[in-house]
Every structure is written in C-alpha cells, then in structure tokens.
C-alpha cells in the first residue's frame, strides 16, 4: 500500500491529482466517464460574482501539440453556481475548490465572501490572469504591486485555504509566487495558459475572434516544469503544478520539480478518464520504486 495523500495549505487531498479549472465543467459533465470521488479535488470552472457571456466565436484553435483558447471566462456567476451546481457537489465525498476571478478588487472580494459563506466549498483558487478595470486594464497577475493589493484583500475575505493561480506571462514567476506567499496565500498553482496567437494566412486574420488566446497542452509542459522548479526555490508554501500533463510520468515530473499536487486540464478533452489513469500510474511508479509515500518525491530533483 502506498500513501498518495498530500496537504495543500491545510486542504487534505486523498491523492495529488486535481482537475484544471475550465476543463472539467462543474463535475457533472464528466461523472458519466468515471467516479469523480476518486479525484484529489475538483477545481470548477472559473466564477465571477456576476455571470459572464465570454468572447465571441471562434474561441479555440488547435496548434502543434497544444490548443489556444479564448473562452473569455464565460461562466454562470457565483450565485447560480451556489444554487444550481453546488448541491450536486455537496452530495459527493470530494474536495471542491472554487476557481474565481474579477475585474476589480471589489468583485474578487464579493466572489470570495459568497463562496466562503456558501458551505460545501473547501478551498478557493484565485485566477489573477485577468485585467483590472480600475487600473488601466493591467493584468492583476503581471504586476507585483497590483497583485499584492488583490491577494491581500481576498485573504481578508476568506478563511478557506487560498490558492493563487499564477500567470506564466511574467519575467520572474518566482517573485510573483513570493508576493502571493507574503500576502497570506496558502498555496500557489501554476502555470495558467501562455498567451499566444495563430493566424490564417489566407484571410490574414487571427484564428481566434479575440485575436490572442491561452496556449495549453503538451506544447507548454517543459516551460511549466521549469517554472514550478523556480517557484519551488522561491517559496515555502505548496505548489499545484500544471501545464500539458497527459500521463502519470508527466505528473511525476512536476512533483519532482517541487509540486505537491498536479492539475490535469487539456488531457481531459482527449481522454475523459485521463485523471484516473494518472492516479493509478502514480501508484504504480511508487510501488516500482519502493517509495511508500508520495511526499518523498516532492521537490526531490537532483541537481
């Protein structure tokens, strides 16, 4: 018997595999494919305090070993989530992490407060890769000072484990992680998608209506692993690593680099049972290597 349990800033996960926000809906979409109670945690589709329509189509395009998306954070809003989606999740023996965002600090705080009060949400993941309406549309997560203000405000608004999801579109992601830690975040998750573009050379238009989009999938994995390693050196708080994880081997790379848990995103689209296969693949790895506890491999990179 190997022990797969990990602790993410006070949140005890039965295994280190969680779903990446926006790739797994609110759980029910994938419940026909496997028993979702087997997940370390579910991270639900990103929520804003008020519902959002999202970007016009086309919203996604495939690129080499990856995909660009510009969904535009379409979501049902916190209130509808609590009323229509959370009751189902409450019936499950499953850690629920609510991903949320806002376009102002006030909106972040309102969402965090409502999700904390709702009951049945076990952790919050804040997406800071969105622009700040009141500060000239600077993306919260790309400016240390802007980020400091929003994380500090949200920290005061919730006593749930708070995970800050870092943007890779920065010069020094270790520095951004340190800012999150200093502002009271319990954990960081990384990486969010990398901003990219893909052009139709015949029409000379972007293949996305939004022009730019977020790149995910195996194409970004080496960058993500490197960033997890950098953040691991910069902070003490736990890391949820993600970026193109398709298999248990991929997931283990992240853990060796310093992640205490991993998030599986794009892989769900290709193989709706990917997370289950990754969990059992991790178990097999530990058995083969005679390791009793998964925590032994976290940050075990030899340099």
């Amino acid at each position: 018997m190997v022990n797969l349990a990990v602790n993410i800033g006070g949140l005890k996960l039965p295994n280190p595999v969680v779903t990446a926000s926006g790739t797994f809906g609110y759980g029910q979409e994938y419940s026909e494919f496997f028993d979702i109670e087997k997940l370390g945690a579910i991270v639900v589709k990103g929520l804003s305090y008020s519902p959002r329509q999202g970007n016009p189509p086309p919203r996604l395009v495939e690129t080499p070993a990856g995909m660009l998306n510009a969904i535009g954070l379409q979501n049902i809003g916190v209130e509808t989530f609590i009323k229509d989606k959370l009751p189902y999740l409450r019936t499950l023996k499953l850690n629920v992490i609510a991903n949320f965002f806002g376009d102002s600090i006030d909106e972040y705080v309102m969402a965090a407060e409502a999700l904390t009060k709702a009951g049945g949400v076990h952790g919050l993941e804040m997406n800071i890769s969105c622009p700040n309406k009141k500060a000239g549309w600077i993306v919260f997560g790309t400016d240390p000072a802007v980020m400091k203000d929003v994380v500090t405000a949200v920290r005061k608004a919730t006593d749930l484990p708070l995970i800050v999801k870092l943007s890779p579109n920065v010069t020094d992601i270790g520095l951004m992680a340190k800012v999150a830690e200093d502002c009271g975040a319990d954990a960081v998750s990384l990486i969010n998608t990398i901003t990219g573009m893909c052009i139709d050379i015949n029409s000379r238009r972007s293949k996305l209506a939004n022009v730019t989009g977020g790149l995910s999938g195996p194409a970004i994995r080496p960058i993500a692993v490197r960033m997890v390693w950098e953040v691991h050196k910069a902070v003490m708080i736990p890391i949820i690593g993600m970026g193109g994880i398709m298999t248990a081997q991929d997931a283990l790379e992240f853990m060796i680099a310093g992640a205490s848990a991993v998030s599986v995103g794009t892989a769900n689209f290709i193989n709706p049972q990917a997370v289950i296969e990754i969990i059992s693949g991790m178990e097999d790895y530990l058995k083969e290597h005679g390791i009793a506890n998964i925590n032994e491999i976290i940050g075990s990179l030899k340099t």
């Binding site: 994938y30 189509p57 395009v61 379409q74 709706p272």
Partner: peptide, 17 residues
Amino acid sequence: EENMACGVGACLGCVVK
C-alpha cells in the same frame, strides 16, 4: 459545426451566437 475540444459541454470552446 465549430472547432471543438471536449465534445461534452465542459470547455465552452464551440459556442455559436
């Protein structure tokens, strides 16, 4: 028809107006 990723309603990538 639209570009599609998940096919099961999760990714919101294939929407039309």
